[in-house]
Every structure is written in structure tokens, then in C-alpha cells.
Amino acid sequence: MRPYKALLLVKVKSLFQYRTAAVAGFFTQTFFGIIRLMILISFFGATRQSIPLSLAQTVNYIWLGQILFTILPFRIDPEIATMIRNGNVAYELVRPLNLFAYWYVKAVALRSIPIVLRAVPMIIMAAFLLPLLGRPDWALQPPPTLAAGIGMGFSLIFAILVSAGITVFASLLLLLFISQDGVVSFLYVLVWGLTGILVPLPFFPDVLKNMFYFLPFRGVMDVPCQIYSGSIHGTSIIYEIGLQAFWVVFLVITGTLLAKALTKRVTAQGG
């Protein structure tokens, strides 16, 4: 266990260095949050149909999504991507560590630490500054019930674990294919479309919504957002978190097997 703990600490320390990126991220996420809100408020104003989320729930869903933006597994660890490209990944393979566990620990740090830097200013802005600026209707509201708040907390932990699992899985696929472009853009499309960051998943047609249950992607963002906004409530909270836990176990087991199989026959780039 000791080497993994040390690795986690090193990664955490280095990630705290990226403060400028956090500032840029803050403005970008705030801007996109506000555009999405204006667009959805207009949609709500025009409709006579019954909508699966209320306007207040949608506002919370959107802000929480922008706050959690950095946990989305858009990219694999840039360090690992560079190593695979220049062949240094060979050093990773000869370490007396379990490759999956080693990369997974790094991925958990990569997905969780940036939120700490980003969430605090985002929450201050969305929950406290917007009402002061005269837009209480745009503001992030507290969860409707205590259960929703606690459920969101647990769900967030599993969301990070699912996201890290997807990240490592994609890294392993990158190791498998020589051409990286396919894996990278495919991952981007899946994450962009299926996590709820583009459009909240409850707005999708029912056929697609049912399909999302067979994929791990909604566990990364949609589940914590829906629990927080109250559209998943009661015992479904426990069921949904259980489903997230299932995806963590699934990704860890298949990932470990894939890593074992790959390390037997991998060809590292020379150079």
C-alpha cells in the first residue's frame, strides 16, 4: 500500500500548482453556466409540455455540472499519454507495481484535486454572488432535503471513482492501439454526449435514457447532479449509488484483467 500512498501525495502536490488554469476554468465555467441558464430559462418560458425537471432543479443541475467539470474523464493523464507516445511507458511496466492500481491511484488524484481548487470560488459565485447581483433566480440553491445533500456527497465519491476507472481504461486502450487519435476523440465524444454536461440527461427521449443505464458515463456526473437537485429521491438514491458502485467494481476488474493481458504482449515505441 505504501508506494501507492506516496504516489498519491506527489500527484496531489503537483496538481495544486495549476492555479492559473483554475482561474481560467472559473471564468469559462461561469460563462457557460450562465449561457446554458439563459437558454434553458427561455425554453421553459415557451413550453406547455410537462418537463421531467422543474426549472429550479435544472438550475441546480447546471451549476453542479459546471462545478464538477474537472472530474469528467475527457482526457487521459497527459503524463501517461506522453509516456505512451515517446516509449517511456516501458519504465512504468517494469516497476514492481500492479499497473492498473498504479495508474488508478494517479487518476483518482487527477480527477479529484482540481475540484477543490475550482469548487469553492464557483460555489461562492453561484450561490452567494448571483443573488447579490440581483439574480436570485439564477442562483445555486441548497439541496431540497438533508438526504439529497448527504446522498450527493456519497455519490460524488463514487463519481470520482467511476471517472478514474474510465480514465485508466482509456489509457490502456491507448497502449493497445498505435494510433492515438481514434481513442482520444472517441472518448471525448462519449463523455461530452453521455454524462449530462452537454444537456441534462433527464431531457433526453426515453429510448436513449434507458440506454444510458447500460453505460458507466452517467455515473460520472448525471447521478450526483440529479440527487442534489432532487429529481432522484427516496430509496432511488441508494439504488443509484449502488449502480455507481457496480460500475467502479466492473471497471476495476476488467481494467486489471486488460492491464495483465496487455503487459504480456505490449510493444513500446522505441526512441
Binding site: D181, S185, F203
Partner: peptide, 28 residues
């Protein structure tokens, strides 16, 4: 490959708009 990837990635934006219209009917 990259061009096809870029085509689908950017098409997602439009699919997102379609999803919203499908749910809400109209925008104003």
C-alpha cells in the same frame, strides 16, 4: 480519422439542441 472524429464531436452540439427542442417543443 481525426476529421471524422471532429465531425461527430461538433455534431453533438447540434444533437444537444435537437434534444432540447424534442423535449420543449419551441424556443419562444
Amino acid at each position: 480519422l481525426q476529421m471524422i472524429g471532429h465531425f461527430f464531436l461538433t455534431l453533438l452540439d447540434f444533437l444537444g439542441i435537437w434534444v432540447l427542442f424534442n423535449q420543449f417543443g419551441k424556443l419562444k
